[in-house]
């Protein structure tokens, strides 16, 4: 994963709440076995609505509970492939939030009022190290789990990090792992 530090640029606005992952990337595009190429299908059905305007910019600003519904990582893949580097919203669905952080698409939580102002400003600078969003001449601080921030800032590979704890996993398996069920006895 590429390190994430500063994301700056125009803001695309999607002022709707409870946007679900079925809208972000509809099911007919989940049949691919690759990780790339989902960007052209992002918001496939909504983009056919008259007046739809969601240009490819570094920052997407959206309403509360963004990314609810299915666990499909195809949703963050599509948003990232389309060009977004950060998403700012008053709240996110849990699995979607996790998925974003795994691929270096930065989810930022700001208050509802701040998100509205950022939408109006149309341009912003997000500094992950300082945990600060600048727009319309203001600086607004945001919270993020320090461990998630560290991994994003350093561009760490999660599996690599966990494998450094292989000893602890082996110890767990030797001493505390529960017995059964064993899935391969069913075959």
């Amino acid at each position: 994963m590429e390190p994430v530090r500063v994301i700056e640029g125009q803001v695309s606005v999607l002022d709707r709440s409870d946007v679900d992952t079925d809208q972000i990337i509809p099911k007919q595009f989940l049949k691919r076995v690759e990780r790339t190429g989902f960007g052209e299908f992002v918001f496939h059905d909504w983009s056919k609505e008259p007046g739809w305007d969601l240009p490819s910019n570094p920052i997407l600003a959206a309403g509360r509970n963004f990314g609810c519904g299915s666990s499909r990582e195809h949703a963050p893949w599509a948003l990232e492939d389309y060009g977004f580097r950060a998403i700012v919203a008053p709240s996110f669905a849990d699995i979607f939030f996790n998925n974003c952080t795994k691929i270096g698409l930065l989810p930022v939580v700001l208050s509802e009022a701040d998100v509205k102002e950022l939408m109006a400003a149309g341009h912003a600078r997000i500094d992950l190290e300082e945990q600060e969003v600048s727009f319309a001449g203001r600086q607004v601080a945001f919270e993020i789990d320090p461990e998630i921030a560290r991994r994003l800032l350093e561009g760490l590979d999660d599996i690599g990090v966990t494998l450094q704890q292989s000893d602890a996993i082996e110890r767990y398996e030797a001493q505390r792992e529960r017995s059964g069920p064993v899935t391969n006895t069913l075959a």
């Binding site: 990780r35 299915s70 666990s71 990582e73 699995i95 996790n98 998925n99 691929i103 599996i159 966990t162």
Partner: peptide, 11 residues
Amino acid sequence: AFGIGTSEVEH
């Protein structure tokens, strides 16, 4: 029991 994304599936 909870749902995870593909990166976590790999993990």
